[in-house]
Amino acid sequence: MFFQQLINGITLGSTYALIALGYTMVYGVLKLINFAHGEIYMFGAFVGMIMVTTFRLSIIPAFIISMLLSSLLGMGIEMIAYRPLRKSTRITALISAIGVSIFLQNLGILIMGPATRPFPRSIRSYYVNLGAIKIDILQIIILIVSIILMVALHLLVKNTKVGKAMRATALDKDAAYLMGINVNRIITITFAIGSALGAAAGVLIGLYFNSVSPLMGSMPGLKGFVAAVLGGIGNIPGAMLGGVILGVIETLGAAYISSAYRDAIAFAVLIIILLVKPSGIMGVNVREKV
């Protein structure tokens, strides 16, 4: 039973990790908590579902189209809702992000209707049996995809020219601009990649739980944010680690303490970790002028 619960926790955790990657990336460059990320995740799930049901595509092209369209949405949001506010205080952009989030949720309800819809299982059911433990192939796929995306993202940021420009922008926007970096372009790219990651999460998680709804982004979005903070926001491997830790704590808490308190346990652990290490598990403590 313990191993089954551990697998449950790791699967849940890798869904949080997938969402957390997008959060952490945007935060790392812009120092903006993009609260609309949960809704991009929802949008991605819907696009994936529509591609599979209405356009009868198989899951891989649906996955790619969903990521592409979501990055367009992400860039659009950045241009309309964040760019005009870039010179304002950080709280202004944050409020704008919350506004976008609520706007997209309600738009989703208007267009797609309020009900939860099924995401047709377009991957063949396959189970790996390990004694009494049964693992769904999708659980393995989710974990592998999140690891691949994390590694790819890490390499992109550390080893490419765009990544270097991103790090420079993150460090000091004005200085980066003076060095000839097109800051706007870098930020747009950041949003595009972050949103594509959100869409990937949406499709995979929609597929796994077989459900898509306009409000599906709010709670997982929050948990993804928590995972990012837990791991050290802005830190890419940290997001992954934070997600998995949060998922495992939640599941084990539900299994061995009480399922009534699963969220309470998860958030209590978050508070404790942040009290001990405010910058998160893998975060670097940078002193900031406020």
């Binding site: 039973m1 089954q4 619960q5 449950n8 926790g9 699967t11 849940l12 869904t15 998680i205 739980f209 459900s211 599906m216 997982p220 939640e250 599941t251 084990l252 539900a254 299994a255 399922s259 699963r262």
Partner: peptide, 8 residues
């Protein structure tokens, strides 16, 4: 959406 712990 996740009920895995309870089901186990």
């Amino acid at each position: 959406t996740d009920f895995s712990a309870q089901v186990t």
